[in-house]
């Protein structure tokens, strides 16, 4: 019997939204799925060799639990984004949640295929040498050729 398939479109480049594609991708692969993740727009940030620029902001993110209530005016101050990111990473680590790097490596190890959107690379004038190796470049039609035959297809 052919393996089940899952396709994900990853469009966000913030720390919180980076997790679902890698968690679901690595898990589906562990369950025997063939998995492909298509990274487009801000999702392309998740393919950088260096993921330190992937951050989280409490600004315009009212659902984010904060240790103390923080007015929007305070959230705007310089350094707040770095601080929120540092605190979130500490929290993730304390709870035994894998880092993005580790989850991404687990995906690659399990043969999850990463496809980067060529149009976005051109649009934002990204330097391909800043991305990890072992990724393919393609467009919407490339995605459809895999997604059209999947059991699960998600947009993140």
């Amino acid at each position: 019997m052919a393996n089940k398939k899952m396709a994900i479109i990853a469009t966000k480049g913030t720390l919180d939204m980076a997790y679902p594609p890698f968690i679901l991708g690595s898990t589906a692969a562990a369950l025997g799925y063939d998995v492909q993740i298509f990274f487009t727009f801000y999702g392309l940030q998740l393919l950088r060799k260096d993921l330190s620029s992937v951050m989280i902001s409490p600004l315009a993110n009212p659902a984010m639990p904060m240790p103390v209530p923080m007015p929007v005016m305070v959230q705007m101050l310089p350094g707040m984004e770095s601080m929120a990111t540092m605190m979130m990473k500490q929290k993730l680590k304390k709870h035994g949640v894998a880092s993005l790097e580790e989850l991404r490596d687990l995906c690659l190890e399990a043969d999850v295929k990463f496809v980067a959107c060529q149009m976005t690379v051109d649009l934002f004038e990204f330097d391909k040498s800043e991305f990890i190796d072992n990724i393919e470049y393609g467009g919407a039609a490339t995605f459809m050729s895999f997604a059209g035959d999947t059991d699960i297809c998600l947009f993140v």
């Binding site: 968690i23 690595s26 898990t27 692969a29 562990a30 035994g96 949640v97 894998a98 989850l103 399990a110």
Partner: peptide, 11 residues
């Protein structure tokens, strides 16, 4: 370890 590591690493 938290989700999904127990499963992914069991595999």
């Amino acid at each position: 370890l938290s989700c999904p590591l127990p499963i992914v690493k069991t595999k």
